[in-house]
Amino acid sequence: MNSTLASQIVTLKIDGKDCGARGDETILSVARENGIDIPTLCHYDGLTDIGACRICLVEVKGSPKLFAACSTLVTEGMEVSTNSPRLQRYRKTILELLFSERNHVCAVCVSNGHCELQAMAMKLGLTHVRLPYRYPNLKVDATHTRYVQDDNRCILCQRCVRVCAEIEGAHVWDIMGRGIEARAITDLNEPWGASTSCTSCGKCVHVCPTAAIFEKGKSAGEMVKRSFVSELAAKREVYE
């Protein structure tokens, strides 16, 4: 990132704890380095942050606005609060919105027990969703020889889009439409199996927080994701 920022050393407080950091670090990374957990959903180590899920919002003293910890750089003297009752309440409601948006049926899901959305519900103590479920009729694309895309479970975190564009470099995925009608698509919204750009590398499968993308042949609870992508991203270099 910005080289002048990187050379700056800043001190800040996160939940009362004094922290030192480089000027080009985000609140999230500094918090994690200091053992302070801020929940996230769309963030993925090694991919560009987009601040879309709003789960990682934190309070910064002196500002009425909330900031996405994943995409806000630390500044000198910043006082961050990561887990106030207000934040907890918002996070829970955002999670409720996500559950109500599409058709998340944990019991029969291949990611049951390994799903980040499910784990987040447990972590934040979400026992039920107060909003009515929308039950949209969504497609399942099983045309790919190895993988399946299931829109019912997609939370539009765009990790697949980012990993494919940034790490694999194929940019097979993108988002079509907008608002509540937005969907993750491959190529010109064509069947994934017919994609001319997909390299079948499987990175999208392993960064997907739920089972919106999963390996064929897995049954309920069997889809365990591997975490090699962050390492790949960290080890990228220009050869020679």
Partner: peptide
């Protein structure tokens, strides 16, 4: 707002839809 929401962030994408309902 529901129809003009870009759909990127959860509160606006799903929230406007729920509020409209």
């Amino acid at each position: 707002c529901k129809s003009e929401s870009c759909g990127k962030c959860v509160p606006c994408r799903v929230g406007t839809s729920q509020m409209y309902d």
